[in-house]
Design a protein around this nucleic acid. Sequence first.
DNA 1: CCCCTCACG
DNA 2: ACGTACGTGAGGGGC
Length: 882
Amino acid sequence: MDKLVLIDGNSIAFRAFYALPLLTNQQGTYTNAAYGFTMMLMKVLEEEKPTHVLVAFDAGRVTFRHSDYEEYKGKRDKTPSELSEQFPLIKKILDTMGIRHHELDGYEADDIIGTMACQGDQQKMKTTIVTGDKDLLQLVTEYVTVLMTKKGVSDAQRYDIAEIDQRYGLTPKQIIDLKGLMGDSSDNIPGVPGVGEKTALKLLHEYGSVEEVLAHIDKLPGKKLKERVAEHQEQAKMSKQLATILCETPLDFDLSDLEYHSFDSAKVAPLFKQLEFKTLLQRISSADEELPVSTQAKDLTIHHITEENFAKWDSLFDEDQLSLFVEMNHPNYHRAEVLALALSSEENHLYIPISVAQKWEAFKNWLADPKKEKCAYDGKGAHVALRRYGLLATGISFDVMLASYLINPSESGHELSDIVTRKLDASLPADEDVYGKGAKRRQLEGEELAVHLTRKTEAMVKLQSILEEELENTGLSSLFFQVELPVSHVLAEMEWQGVKVDKEGLQELGKELSSRLKELTSNIFDLAGTEFNINSPKQLGEILFDRLGLPVLKKTKTGYSTSADVLEKLAPQHEIVEEILHYRQVSKLISTYVEGLMKERSEDDGKIHTRFQQAIAATGRLSSTDPNLQNIPIRMEEGRRIRKVFIPSQENWLLLAADYSQIELRVLAHLSGDENLIEAFHSNMDIHTKTAMDVFDVEADDVTPEMRRHAKAVNFGIVYGISDYGLSQNLNITRKEAGEFIERYLESYPGVRKYMDDIVKKAKQDGYVTTMLDRRRYLPDINSPNFNRRSFAERTAMNTPIQGSAADIIKKAMVEMKSALDEAHLSAVMLLQVHDELIFEAPEEELEKLTEVVRRVMEDAVELTVPLRVDVDAGKTWYDAK
DNA sequence: CCCCTCACG
DNA sequence: ACGTACGTGAGGGGC
């Protein structure tokens, strides 16, 4: 059966342009609108499987509508050149794909689409219009539907007659009347001033059309409304006319010219490659691929290592460098089963089942030899996993994952398949595609596993030299080899050690919290007068705002907001609110911490082994998963008690916590060179009190706790990339007041103001910012025409050098800590890192010496224009090491 | 699978 | 006028 798809080219390109960051390819061509457009196009082709396709564009700026109304589209901003220069590109893509596109002088894309939609309807041909413009809903009929992009371009909603009726209570034709009454500010269609969507819909439900409304002016409700409509009768009629889409545009083609047969990937692929549409490239090649995958795999000679034949491969270990990959059946390498290993040199590709590896002496010697260089992918995970099988891996001198991360830490994936797609002229199936996910997950075995695995190490050999060169070219080599790679070895050791957890203590805490939760629950039900699920924001919102009638202070996209900041404001109005806040706290402690930690505690050693993710955070920070040990409660006493269950692993040992005091503001003082801020740290003042003195112009003794609290928030704001709005939200003050605080701050610290201005300017020039140790973060939105995107990028430009340099510093300290502990003959071990804090366990008698060593290493990690200060505390539990 | 909420620095 | 604080991870609800 025939099927017609009509695409509103301008509308979709606009949507894509504002939804996506301002991407460019290597040649500097802007590609974001073309990319988003093509993504949408491919999706529609796949899902609709049309036999006929047309993309319509607007032509020029003057249309027949302008002769009726000069100001038509008058208020619209000029199309940014970054977008307009992409239209030829989009048309080229369409030509290459064999898709017809048309524009016509004096008419809009809407009219071309309207005319073809009418033809489709007359021929009873199923027709889909793709647009982001609600005007086109007027074209819907029994045969014609509209696919409306929601946010961005990926998500769309289909409108047929029933859906329009449900949404507006109107027929498609009445959409024109709706526009006639309410107007459209984006097209500068006036409508009737003061009549918005609500009023217009009410009138149309009553009278049906603009003409009928005008015929009954005297019956309209409200004096104001009557006057307005009476006064703007002509304008309403004209607005309706402007909004009416033409069905008789003089076109020099007809339906039969729009036939579409699937595109030729051999022609399209080179274009996508040039534009660097990598995901799309993968999609068009994987669609008719299957074959190339197996050909590639056939090219690869795999040597299957067995107990019988390994001896003849002993000489492989004379090679200077081999790539090693450890395949597991699960991402958590602390408990995953190792399936097999692969090993590649330039020429040879070995597949080694884990049981064979364990018996192969030459392999084990090579693996454990620090002088034998190994290129790994996630060397930390590989090391930990192999260690559980009695295999010691050292000498990991390159890590493909970490290199890819340093080259661009904002990139969405650093899976090997992602890196191959980005850096090589090849593709590798993603683990998820090979294994499936969730319930569909399957085990791989035999030849299939061997192929999948050796293709990885084969790719790694090629990647290593490319990545090494790229690191060198972008000034990242030293950070990589001196910090990032060594810290991965330190982290492997920390994770391997794990933290001991007091099981009984955790269970008791759980019991106590559960009975507290029970009391709270019954109190809340009493106060509400009914039972409901307190954990459901939806149900809670209904109770608070519908049943109890509390005022709605904030809404979310989906309904009422019940977040803590809202509830705190409502607390004085009803007893129940305080109880709910408390319930939330306790419930969080039970589910995330008591139950969450219990799940992750290993029965083997009574410890928790987190994984520190080293290739996630765009600023260079670490993160922690399964469980996250970087967000254990501390701010509220009730939650802080969770820390009592973290204990040393041996009798008469202690936990010791060492944290950098104000590291981010000290980094800011250093980076900005602001004299006032530098002086504050040299004189060892309380920095928030100092800020309060400057901002509020008072003496130290006159700083009230309230003033200090405000000053503290201003300091946070500065670090985050200040905005008056953000600060006003945080402090619950007006934007004007917040703006004044900021201005007073920047007057007191002129060096900071200059630094912030300069870093944004530099980011706009270079397209990236760097940290003290030359870590890089690209900011593709820094010159975006979209205010939100650009502002966000500007704040990131201010924040990343600060947060990122702090991350650099603690990583450097961690690398140096290992040898410092050895030299001091300490048996203490480092267990955790929490961004500006390191946690150790050690015998009691080492306390004094350890404190001295830890403080020295951390404080001397880098030399700044201000001193770094470290606070150290120790105790029997993490709670007591405060 | 997305949204909301909330824990940390 | 726009509508945000920076960086993370996890659990529960609901479609």
